[in-house]
Design a binder for these strands. Structure first.
Lengths: 232, 232
DNA sequence: ATTCGTGATACTGTATGCAGTATGTAAGCG
DNA sequence: CGCTTACATACTGCATACAGTATCACGAAT
């Protein structure tokens, strides 16, 4: 059985195009990306062992690139390596979740201030566009698309801060929590509240009011914790 | 030629003891740890390509565990993977350095506040003990030992915050800058200033004054940037 | 002389094979 | 009937072999 994307071969995975330039993507990186998706979607649940031979067969790759992909995820903290027992998907306790959100909050507050100070008008407009697109998916009740744009907006704001380290760190921590936030988004009726918080974020950003944006982001993440903690 | 530690075999690397319990450490992890050291010490300089066969020979391991170790470091952001050209040690620009210190500052400020609120008296005493030991190495002018304890103190304060995510993030970012701070420590005559800043940090911690500790840490990192930026 | 092309070389990416260890199962013993 | 132990199985850890690609050197042509 093939897992993940349906399109099987080179056109999608091994070779892609980027501005006319052919970029060759090693299998390991493709596998790593696929694994990240499988983990956030819950196809590989938290705590599950990763069986190299069966997963390799499902993905259609040999053990070597799969192992190397797993090592990357281990470096990012998405999986844990247990000696002689392979890798298991990292399981977040409620405290882990809380701790991560505390850090994320601190980082987004920092990012918000920096973004208001440094972002270009075009950059702000792009985030606003993402927001409008997200609203569209919200009214259409398209959960997956909404979720992805939601994450993208947070990443985009962080990107506006023009701080690569901040962006990278934020991305990794966000990735660890993606699964819980993904399922958390599922049945939640607090959806409307989250959207309203996003509205305020965008307004603050457009006003280039760093403190206000930081406050909005902080509040949003506090509320995120209450929205999500029930799932643990 | 053997690189790194002198003691060659099992006693040191493959098998160690931990509270009477034998812990088996995979080669890859040992190699990863060794690589981190080689990078911070500058034995493998920033920007250098990692030749798998020669480095593997030097470390006395085959390419497989070496490659997997490199993948872990890639996940941590210490090396970059270039398709078909292997891995190169990540090179930090002055901006990267600045960005990282901004993030580190924000995180240590957060950690300082949390530590003052949550740390046990014993934990505080342990950090104080580290500080006293560091002072000892300072008066003895033992640079390497001083450097290691310096880093350890920062990590220990972060550890007192009892936030695993914060600790992990801090560790990774600190690891990326270790080399520059290592050489930066070399000839610096601003050494005394750094020590004084540490004194204030410890006093604030012992007083459990979160704002004061955050301020001390922030100032220390600001000064660190001025101490280090000349090296870029 | 310089530039472009061509071939050799060396290194990375991937697959596979082998050895060692953990785990589950079944049989023997209390 | 429960517990221990021994064995079989399956999976990980590591090494090696092979294929594909980038790089460098050398030579030819302009």
């Amino acid at each position: 059985m093939e897992l993940g994307s349906s399109r099987s071969d080179l056109a999608e995975r091994g070779i892609a195009e980027n501005g006319g330039r052919i970029v060759r993507r090693p299998l390991q990186e493709e596998v790593a990306a696929r694994l990240r998706d499988l983990i956030t979607q819950g196809t590989i649940p938290a705590g599950a062992r990763i069986n190299e031979v069966v997963l390799g067969a499902q993905l259609g790759v040999s053990r070597t690139p799969l192992r190397e992909a797993v090592r990357m995820l281990a470096g990012e903290g998405l999986v844990e390596l247990v000696p002689a027992r392979g890798a298991v998907v990292r399981k977040l306790s409620a405290k882990d979740m809380f701790d991560s959100l505390v850090v994320l909050k601190s980082m987004e507050e920092l990012a918000g201030r920096l973004a208001c100070a440094k972002a270009s008008a075009q950059g702000i407009e792009e985030v606003s566009a993402l927001h409008r697109a997200m609203l569209e998916h919200y009214v259409q009740r398209e959960r997956l698309a909404y979720f992805k744009l939601n994450q993208a907006i947070h990443s985009a704001i962080v990107a506006l801060s023009d701080n690569a380290t901040l962006a990278w760190t934020h991305e990794v921590i966000q990735a660890r929590m993606k699964h819980i936030r993904f399922i958390g988004n599922a049945g939640s009726e607090k959806w409307a509240g989250a959207v309203e918080e996003h509205e305020e974020m965008i307004r603050a950003l457009q006003a280039r009011d760093g403190n206000r944006l930081a406050a909005a982001l902080g509040l949003h993440l506090d509320r995120t914790f209450t929205r999500v903690k029930a799932l643990l």
